[in-house]
Design a protein around this nucleic acid. Sequence first.
DNA 1: AGCACGCCGACT
DNA 2: GTCGGCGTGCTC
Length: 828
Amino acid sequence: MNKEFKIVQVIVNNNSYQTDKLFDYEIPTHLYNKITRGMRVMVPFGRGNQRLEAYVFNVTTSSAKDMKLKKVLAVIDEQPILSEHQLRLAFWMKNQYLCKYIEAIHCLIPKGMINKERKLIILVNNQWDTLISPSQRKLKNILTTINDLGGKVYLDLLMQHVDYKEINDAIKTLLEKNIIDIKYEFNSKINIKTERYVYINVKDNRWNEVLASLKNAKKQKVSLEILKQQGECSVKELLYMANTGMTTLNSLKDKGYIGFMDVEVKRDPFANKSFSAFPKPVPNKEQQMAIDRIGNSIKNNINDRYLIHGITGSGKTEIYLQLIEKVLEKGKQGIVLVPEISLTPQTVSRFMGRFGDRIAVLHSSLSDGERYDEWRRIAMNEVDIVIGARSAIFAPLKNLGIIIIDEEHEHTYKSDQTPRYMATDIAEYRSQLENTVLVLGSATPSMETYHKALNGKLDLITLTKRATDAKLPHIEVVNMTEELELGNTAVFSSQLIAAMEENLKNQKQTILFLNRRGHSSVISCKSCGYVLKCEHCDITMTFHRTDERLKCHYCGQMKHVPAVCPSCNSDSVKYSGTGTQKIEDLVKHYLPTARIMRMDMDTTSRKGSHEKILESFKNQEVDILIGTQMISKGLDFPNVTLVGIISADSALNLPDFRAAERTFQLVTQVAGRAGRGLEEGRVILQTYEPNHYSIIASRNHDYEKFFQDELIIRKEFYYPPFTNLILLNFSGKDEKTVDYAANSVANHIKYILNSQGYNTFDYNILGPNPSMISKIKENYRYQILLKDVEVPFGLLKKAVKYLLIDNRNKYIPQNLTCSIDINPFTII
DNA sequence: AGCACGCCGACT
DNA sequence: GTCGGCGTGCTC
C-alpha cells in the first residue's frame, strides 16, 4: 500500500555539472510545515552521506515508492532566503548562460550566507600505537600530526600538514578503530563582527571595600571608577579614557571585578565619511521632459524600458535622482548600477547626499563581511535604494520600482567569471518579472542597445544639451604621421605641448589619457630585435619605472631587465611602447614646474587611494593628471579645460569586433572631462589614423554617424546586434590536448548541425584557433566562436549544452578547462 | 565536488 | 598477503 508523503526537490551546494540537477528528499513529519520553496535545508548526499546545504526549489507530495528517498536532516532558514522571483531568475540564468543552478544561486546570495561543513578530527584514544600495526606508516604519521597539533584539527588543515592523496581512507579506518572522532562544524565563513565590551561586576554594597583593596593599583582603580560611571563600554573606549593598557583590565577581571562580553557590531563601509546634503538643482527643459515621461511610467506601474542617450554633462544623474524620488514617493525601491563605484565616488556621494541612510552601497572592494551585512540590510527591508556595481543587480529588494543602469555600454556590466552574465540582461529580465521601469543611460550607447532603441524595443530619450549650458569641448585631431614627417618623433605633438604649457600658465588643469600602464610595454634588443616575453604567458613584459623591474600584466611575475640580450648577448636595450609612467617622466621633463599626479592600477591599489588622488586634483593641488581608463568616467572638475589623448589608436587596432566602438566611446568619454565649467574645453587627440570613421565621428560629437557607419560593418561581418555569439574557451597545460579537444568539440558541433540539416559552417563556426594571448600562466588557450548565422541560436546553444554540459566528461578531458561565454564582450 | 569501491604494483 | 596510489562511477 502506497502512502503519500511530502518531498522536496533541491539543488545541492556542490559545484559540479554532474550534480547540477534537482534531487528529491523526503520531508520527515516533524518538518512538514516548516519547509517552503526558497529555503535552505541540510541533506545527506552521496554514498558517504556527506552533509550538504541544499536549496529548496519545490515542495510536493509523492506516492511513488520505487526509489528509496533519503530524508531532510534539518531546515536552515525560518523564512525563504530566495524569493519566488529569485528562483525564477536562477532558472532563467541557467538556460540563458548555460551555467549551473548553483552558480546562479551563488550570484543571488552573498558568500557569507553559504554554509559548508568542516570536519573537526579529534583524537580520542591516546593508546593508539597499540591499535595499529607498525607497517601502517601513513596512519601513524597522521596520528602523530594530529597529536602535535593539539589532539584536534580541522581536516582541511590536517591535509596541509600531511601529504597523502587518499587521506579519507585513513580517516575512515581510524574512525572504525575508534581512535578518532569526527565533529561536524559549520564554517560560517564570515564571522559576525563583534566588539569586546566591559561591564562592572561589583555590587554597590562592596564598592568601597573593593576600591580600598585597589589603593596600590592606581590604574585599576581609575579604570573601575570610570567604568562605574559609564555602566558599560567597549574595551577600546575604556582603555582610552583610563589611559591604560590591557594588563590593567585583565587583572581586574582576574579579581572578578569586571567581565568581558562580545557585542555584535555592524560594519559600516562609510563609517569615516560624511556626505553633505546635495542641493537639488532645477532641471533644464530636456531633463524635465525625460523626468516627466519616465515619471509617468513610474506613476502607472508600467514595465516601460528607456534609453536615455545624453551627451556627456547633460545631467543624467540628476534625472536618475528625481526618478528615484518619484519611486520612493510610491513606496517602492530602486537599484542604480554604476560601472565601478570606486571610479565614480561623485555619483555615489550625490545619492547619499540626497537620500541619506536608506541606501546600501555595494562596492567591489567591500570585504565579504561588509557585503554580507549590506545584503542583510537590504533583505531585511532596511534600505530603499541600492547603488552598486554589476552584482548589485541581484540585490534582494522586495518591492522594486525602478532599475537604472548608468553608462550602460560599459564592459564592467559583463561578468568575467562563470556565469558570465550581462547585468543589463539581468536587469531587463528582472524588470519584466517584477514589473518595474528600466532606465539605461549613456552618452555612447552600445551598438546593441541603440539598435534596440531604434527598433522600438526601448523608448529613446535624447538629451542634446549640457545641463549647465556648457558647450561640448572642441576636439582637435593631430595626425601623428604628419608630426613624424615634420621630424617630431616624440610622444607629444607640438600642439599638445604648447597647449599644456598655456594651460599651466593660466592655472587651469589638464588631464592626459593613455590606456596603458607601466613605463614601456615592449622591451626589445636593438641589435637583433628579440622581444622580451613573460616565461609563463605569451605576452610582452612591461617595464615599470617605479621599481625598475619588468612585470607581466597577466600573471604578475616580476623580474629585472636582463643585462644582455638572451638571444644575441648584445647589451643595447630598446624601451618602446609608451605607458603612463613614461608619460609622467616626459611631462616632468617638459614642464618641470607642473604638479603632476598619475592615476592607474599601480597608484590606486591601496584602499582609499582613488579618493585621495581625486581629492587633491579637485582641490587644485595638481596641475596635470595622467591616467588610464579609470579617469575616463564620471569625473566632473570645472577647472579642467584641456584633455590630451596621447594615442587613440591602441584600442582601435585590436583585432576585436568592438574595437571601433570602444575607441569611439573612450574618446567621447575622456573628451567629456573637458570644459565642464564656464570655459570651453579643448581636447587634443593624437592618432595615426585621423580618417578612421570612429575618430571623425568622435571629433564631430556625432554618435548617430558613428552608429550608422559601424552598423554597416557589423551587418557585413555578422556581428552583434545582428548575431548572437557563443565563445568557447579551452585552456590547459598541454597544448596538444587543448588543441585536440577544441577540434573535437568543433567537429561535433558541425556533426550536430549537419544532422539538423545545416551544412555550411563558414560563417557560424570560427576556429578553433589559438586565442589572441595564446598562453597565460603556463596554460595554452584555444577558442571557438559560434555565431547564429543561418543557424538558429537555440540550436547552437543546444549543441553546446549537449557537448559541454550534459556529456562534458566525454568531450573535455579532466586536465583541461573549458568555459562558455554567451555573447562575450570581446572575442580576444 | 567528494566519496567509496576496486584494481594493481610495491613492499614486507 | 597487506599498504597505499589511482582510475571510475555515482550521488535523490
